[in-house]
Nucleic acid binder design. Structure first.
Lengths: 225, 225
DNA sequence: CGGGACCTTGAAACACCTCAAATATGGTGG
DNA sequence: CCACCATATTTGAGGTGTTTCAAGGTCCCG
């Protein structure tokens, strides 16, 4: 969907910083550990810090007052969370598995951006990537059918793995989480897995371990052009 | 969906600049006029400028290689277009009606941001608003039904009008554009209009002129919570 | 007044959802 | 280590909403 295919590693706030700058940044960091199901912060709570995910997996979701839920993203190593555009976060972040997170107080982080140009550039770049991700999701939800949307997710998860092992995907999220990410019901997600399985595109080792057998087919459906 | 309801006027690049700063910015501006159907730029073309819409209406869309099209936004006065996160634009922008656009060369615009802190803050704010808009759209496409999605669009258009006349909406876009924005077909859009009309929520003066009779109902469906 | 593009309406097909039941999974205590 | 339970997932049948295909209207401009 987006122009640049995954050739270069994704930008993080540490990208291209000097050792000295990294040290400056690290002085602000407080490490936090989350267990599966723990919340990092809730929708509507005041924005006080930004977070970078070190290990584990986080889920970003938004809920409306009557309970409809939309999962906005699954975050992995290196992702930055909580760049605010409001005084309050407008989504909830929780851990899907045990996670280690770097917390950086917003005020000091903002200040450090003034000193380190590269850091500000990185934040801008990450902001752009987040928007690109959101637009990809808009495209997927607007234009794709169930099994194509599922392929879209599998491709996203696969792309973030090292190339050698990008065929085996560990799903940390539940079928409900997947459904709420793709704008489907759990039953439809389950049947979409069944369809990909029947077609021979994937092999389901266990509920949470999927092997992509035919990457080309998955990619084609994910792009759904 | 998003926390802040439309109380304050939306941020533009000119927001809170001093007269002197505005003059600095205006020195970079080249005005461009577009007729309906004209393109401002195409997907994949190199990003060289940013644009601010003065009058008229623009449409942002993205197409996949096999022709499926997703409309990403309808832009109105004050909106900023083309903040790049790539060397290339990853969408196409065209005019829905005669439009007047301020073009600012990217290099000089970037430079000026270094001199004027407020300008940079504005760009960041606008970037956040764009993301918030994209996330609203994700929510709409993922969670809402046809007549709710249409209400979502009508509410968006209504919110950008002055309060006195926010009930009468001039639709500059075709039914196909609306369909591609909402992830529906033109027939479904047409039936959704029919449904809102039957329910008495709207009155259709002409194909391109809609009056909202029951704003509460439209808002409730737009939020769809 | 005619023609073409755009929009609406209808009927049938299809995808997805809902509700319900069966099955699998994972954790816990015996 | 196994049996058991609660929870999560899959499967099935039927209903709903959206799409598809086709026809009929409407609008606009020459």
């Amino acid at each position: 969907m987006t122009l640049d295919k995954q050739t270069k590693p994704p930008t993080t706030i540490y990208t291209a910083l000097t050792a000295k700058e990294i040290e400056q940044l690290d002085r602000l960091v407080v490490f936090r550990e989350l267990e599966p199901g723990d919340f990092l912060f809730h929708q509507y709570s005041p924005a006080a810090s930004v977070y970078m995910l070190d290990t584990g997996m986080l889920m970003i979701e938004r809920s409306s007052s009557t309970g409809r839920r939309q999962v906005l993203a699954f975050m992995q190593r290196g992702n930055l969370i909580g760049i605010p555009h409001n005084k309050h976060y407008d989504f909830t972040v929780s851990a899907l598995r045990a996670s280690r997170i770097r917390e950086i107080p917003l005020r000091q982080f903002t200040q450090l951006q003034e000193e380190i140009t590269q850091l500000k550039d990185n934040v801008r770049e990450i902001g752009g990537n987040i928007l690109a991700h959101a637009l990809d999701q808009v495209f997927a939800l607007g234009q794709k059918r169930a099994h194509e949307r599922l392929s879209f997710l599998l491709k996203q998860l696969s792309d973030r793995l090292p190339p050698q092992q990008c065929h085996i995907i560990e799903l940390s999220m539940s079928r409900q989480d997947i459904a709420d990410y793709l704008g489907l019901t759990i039953e439809t997600v389950s049947r979409a897995f069944g369809k990909l399985k029947t077609e021979g595109s994937i092999f389901v080792h266990s509920i949470h371990t999927i092997e992509i057998l035919d990457m080309d087919a998955i990619e084609e459906m994910a792009l759904a052009d």
